[in-house]
């Protein structure tokens, strides 16, 4: 089993991973989905965390409940964020977590920046919720489930979708 800890201080770690490998994540990640990407892109807001070395999780959770600080929190379809994503990798973003294939432009941006695209198991909100140890809103609080949460995770299972060499698990399908 491979492991990654966010924020990713040691960027050479991405080079050791290949598309299709399972990775267990821990550390801090940030949620953001359609609305936040669109607002920031239009200049109606700024990322409430540094992009460099960090990881964006495309997820809009349910309200928190006992034992689930981020509620049910599976990944949403990544492709809807494709147009916004290449620029973020260029600014140092280490990884994104979502589900499904990405565009060619995203793949190229990942290859050039040495980043990663990680695939979470689609629809598995309860499973991922059980791997969250803490969460709080740090931006766009008015957006409800689309707000940006700072999330502490432990044993968060994902698969490498696009590796830092541009290898793409969905390309082989």
């Amino acid at each position: 089993m491979k492991y990654l800890d966010f924020p990713l201080k040691n960027r050479t770690a991405t080079g050791k991973l290949k598309a299709g490998q399972e990775v267990m994540l821990s550390g801090i990640i940030y949620t953001a989905r359609d609305k936040v990407h669109s607002l920031v892109s239009d200049g109606d807001g700024e990322w409430p965390f540094p992009l460099k070395d960090n990881c964006i999780f495309y997820s809009g959770p349910t309200p928190r409940s006992e034992g689930f600080p981020l509620g049910s929190c599976g990944p949403t379809t990544s492709a809807r964020m494709d147009d916004y994503t290449p620029g973020l990798y260029r600014k140092g973003l280490a990884a994104t977590i979502g589900k499904g294939p990405r565009s060619e432009k995203v793949r190229e941006a990942i290859k050039h920046s040495g980043g990663l695209y990680l695939v979470a198991y689609g629809g598995c909100g309860a499973l991922y919720g059980s791997r969250v140890t803490g969460a709080r809103v740090i931006g766009f609080a008015g957006l409800g489930p689309q707000a940006v949460y700072k999330v502490s995770i432990e044993d968060f299972p994902v698969i490498v979708g696009i590796d830092s060499y541009g290898g793409d698990i969905f390309k082989e399908v």
């Binding site: 198991y121 909100g125 309860a126 499973l127 919720g129 059980s130």
Partner: peptide, 14 residues
């Protein structure tokens, strides 16, 4: 995931 959802009564999908 399905068994966690059922046991903890939390939505299986967000």
């Amino acid at each position: 995931n399905i068994s966690i959802g059922q046991k903890c009564r939390i939505p299986v999908c967000q």
